[in-house]
Amino acid sequence: MEAMVKKYQQKFRKVRDEMNRWDELQCRLISQFRNASSIIERLQVLQDPSNYGALNCIDGIRDEVLRKQMESLEINLLSMKRTMEEFHGIVFSIEKIHRDSKQQIKGGSSKPNAKQLQQRVGVKPSLVDCLDGLLVLYDMHHSEYRLKASVVSALSALTLKPSASDLCALQQLLVDQPNIPKEEVQFIFDIIFAEEIC
């Protein structure tokens, strides 16, 4: 049973690696979002010819500036889409880790009974602790991924009807990551790696 727990701890380390990559992607996504939303905010000002001051002597300047800005916005939205795909990859790999773990218990040669599943040796976690922990982590990231995906698509929709307060609220939502409460994540890892804390 102890060897089994060790294997699970290994899986949690993998999940932690994935979560570190998640954090990197989070930084990238936020800066991409900021860039995109600052362009969107500018669009209205850029559409009004009376805002071009001395530049009005250049024939066609407004269309060209707008075209260029739309072009960079498009590139920006595209790279956000790519970042989202990478987020999805992380969710997928956490899911796989969880699925494999479940499989090991149910399909393994030494089928542990209910009592063994609950059994804790010293500060080591029980197998149920491990399985539940993995499931919770997967759920968190899965829901957060879906939230981010809807925020990103809301951003594209705002391009046509920009509103500064909406943009601000969306950005806050991205930054907060409400589906991944830090304390709860820490709590799970504390149980799994209790021996390392002691």
Partner: peptide, 28 residues
């Protein structure tokens, strides 16, 4: 185009300044 003479507008308002900065960045 028969470009009209350049007329410099002094003391532009904040929106115009924003457009100037964006135009700088856009490298049209």
């Amino acid at each position: 185009s028969d470009t009209p003479a350049v007329q410099c507008k002094n003391q532009p308002n904040p929106e115009v300044l924003q457009v100037y900065l964006t135009t700088w960045l856009a490298e049209v």
